[in-house]
Amino acid sequence: MISILQSYSTMLLRALGYTLVLTVLALIFAMIIGLIFALMNVSHSRILNIIGTVYVDAIRGVPLIVLAFFIYFGVPQAFKMMGFTSFRLPALQAGTIALAMNCGAYMAEIFRAGIESIDKGQMEASRSLGLTYGTSMKCVILPQAFKVMIPSIINQFIITLKDTSILSVIGYPELTNMGRTIAGNTFLSLQTWAIVGVMYMIVIVSLSKAAKRIERKIKIEDSEGKPRKRHRDQ
């Protein structure tokens, strides 16, 4: 165990860094994708509803690993068939896209539930003042919905972080992939995977703790009726 840590600690930490970068990138894109499809789902347009539902159902119906293979191996072949010269996305891009698309579908559901949890009267009050649907969403509904969604978003962050390990199959140099390399080189599987497991655990447990803290804080604010800013100043 000590010998692995001695020789591979820098590489392990770098791999953990890649894992976190991939997670954060995927999450940022997933938030954008999620917001777009959630807005489609809550809109009054039948067509947008259908597009939103199809995306969410389709993506959630496909295992992440299949989606990753499809984007990494399948899409280049499609380009080739269309007459383009052989083209392949680097693992980072392909991995980020696969993860963002997958996470985006779950984010869409989190956003939709968040938006729908806000009292209908809020939108009506805003519209009755002459504000457009878009402005009402942006200034009235989404800020309130976002607060409700924070715990779910952190939870999704944790899930996505774990899901990055699946992308080791397309050769993305994240933590699990590094674990495979080290275990292969040293034949010390038990020690290697124990170390990798503990590394994931430390990050994820810290995130869960943070999520709990934030959740509790929101609850206290709501029951005391205090604005958020004051708390931050203390």
Binding site: D119, Q122, A125, S128, L129, P143
Partner: peptide, 12 residues
């Protein structure tokens, strides 16, 4: 202008 039974002030 419209005034509602349940006020519908923006809590944020």
């Amino acid at each position: 202008g419209m005034v509602f039974q349940h006020f519908n002030l923006f809590p944020n």
